[in-house]
Design a protein around this nucleic acid. Structure first.
Lengths: 202, 202
DNA sequence: CGGATTAGTTATAGGTATATAACCAATTTC
DNA sequence: GAAATTGGTTATATACCTATAACTAATCCG
C-alpha cells in the first residue's frame, strides 16, 4: 500500500503527471492506469480523487487556462510600444508552451470519446482572448502607420500565429522543446522587423 | 455477404477509406471495424487484404509520399525565378494537403502502439526532400541578393514552413479545409513580398 | 478515545480493438 | 469441369481501459 496523502495533494500530483504523460504519449493515450503507475498507487485509487476521467482534464484545463489568461493580461502595460507588446505576448505564450508542452497537443488532439471536448473549448476561449490582445496591439501599430502598405491587421495576426504554430508543429513532430528557445525569439524578431518594427521608442 | 471483388481493388478502396477516416476521427482512432463498416464488409474481411493493420498504413504512406515527391520534383523548372519556384512548391504542397487533409494529422499524431511509426518516418523523409527544394530556391534568391540583409536562408525556410504549418494547424483545429484556399495564396504572397519578392522577371 | 470520514486495496464487470480459426462460396486455372 | 485459390462469413481468444463494488487501514474531529 502506498503512503496515504490528502486528496488536494494527490489532485495536484495527478494534474502534473497527466500533463507530463499528455506530452509523452499524446493526450488521448493517457490512461488512468498510466497515471496511477507513475503515482505509485493502484489504478482505481485515481477514482477516489476524480470521479470521472474527464474530471482530470477539467483540472488540467484550469491550470492551463489560468496561465494563458495571465500572459494575455500581462501585456496590457501601455508604456510599451505596439511591437514590444506583441513581442511580450508571443514570447510569453512560447514560455507557457515550453513549461507545459502538452498544451498544443491537447489543442490538436482528436478525441472521439469526448473526454477532451470541454477542455479544448475552454482553451480555445482563452486563446481567443490572447488573439484579441494581439489584434489590439497590431491595430495600434497599424493606426500609427507602422505596418507596410497592403498588410492588414488580420493578416499580420495570422503571420504571428503562423510563427507560433510553425514552432509548435516542429515541437510536436520533433519532440524537442529546444526549438522554442533556439528559434522562437530570433524568428519573432525577424518577422516583426519584416513587418516594419524599427524599434519601439516611447 | 458483400459482393466479392479482386484484392487489388479492395486494397485501393481501403486506402481511400482510411485516409478519409484519418481526417475525420484522427489517424490513431481509425479501427479496422470502421473501415470494414464503410466498405460494407465484416471486420475480419480486412485481414484478407492486409495481414496487419500496420500494413494498411504502409499502403497509405505509399500514396502520400508519391504525391509529396511529385510536387517536390515539379518545381525544378529552371525557367522560373527563385521566388516563383518557392511559390510553386508551397502552393503545390498546400494542394496536396487540400486533397488529403489526413497528411498533417498523420505527421502530428502520437502513436504509442507504433502502428504509424514507420509511416511517419517515410513521410518525414519525403518532407525533407521538399524542404531541400525550398532551400535550393531560397539559396538562389539569396545569391541574387534578393533577400533582405540579415535574413538567412535557413530562417527564410523556417518562415515558409511556419506559414504552411500555421495554416495546417488552423486546418486541424478548425476542421475546415477552406482556410487553405482562402488564406494560403494570399499569406504566401504577403510573406514572399515581405521577404523581398518584387516579382520575378526572367 | 472512539466513531466518521477518507485514501487506499483487490477483484471484477463491461466495453472496445486486433487478430485468428473454422468454414463457405465465388473465381480462376489447368 | 474439377481442383485450387481467393474473398467473404461468424465466432471467439486476447488484451486494454474505464469504472464500480466490497473491503480495510489511516487520519480527523468531537
Amino acid at each position: 500500500m502506498s503512503a496515504r496523502k490528502p486528496s488536494d495533494d494527490r489532485k495536484a500530483e495527478i494534474v502534473l503527471i497527466t500533463l507530463d504523460l499528455a506530452f509523452e504519449v499524446g493526450p488521448d493515450h493517457v490512461t488512468t492506469g498510466m497515471i496511477a503507475k507513475r503515482l505509485g498507487v493502484s489504478q482505481p485509487a485515481i477514482y477516489k480523487h476524480f470521479p470521472k476521467k474527464e474530471d482530470i482534464w477539467q483540472a488540467v484545463t484550469d491550470t492551463l487556462c489560468a496561465r494563458i489568461a495571465a500572459n494575455t493580461a500581462r501585456a496590457r502595460s501601455p508604456e510599451e510600444g505596439p511591437f514590444d507588446q506583441v513581442r511580450t505576448l508571443v514570447l510569453g505564450h512560447l514560455a507557457i508552451i515550453h513549461a507545459t508542452p502538452a498544451l498544443p497537443e491537447i489543442m490538436v488532439t482528436r478525441d472521439p470519446t469526448g473526454n477532451l471536448t470541454k477542455t479544448r473549448a475552454r482553451i480555445h476561449t482563452a486563446m481567443g482572448a490572447f488573439r484579441a490582445a494581439l489584434v489590439t496591439s497590431l491595430d495600434a501599430a497599424h493606426e500609427a502607420g507602422r505596418l507596410p502598405a497592403g498588410v492588414t491587421v488580420e493578416d499580420a495576426v495570422k503571420l504571428m500565429f503562423g510563427l507560433i504554430q510553425g514552432l509548435v508543429l516542429r515541437l510536436i513532430v520533433g519532440r524537442d522543446i529546444a526549438v522554442l528557445e533556439s528559434d522562437g525569439a530570433r524568428l519573432l524578431d525577424l518577422q516583426l522587423a519584416l513587418l516594419g518594427n524599427t524599434g519601439d521608442k516611447l
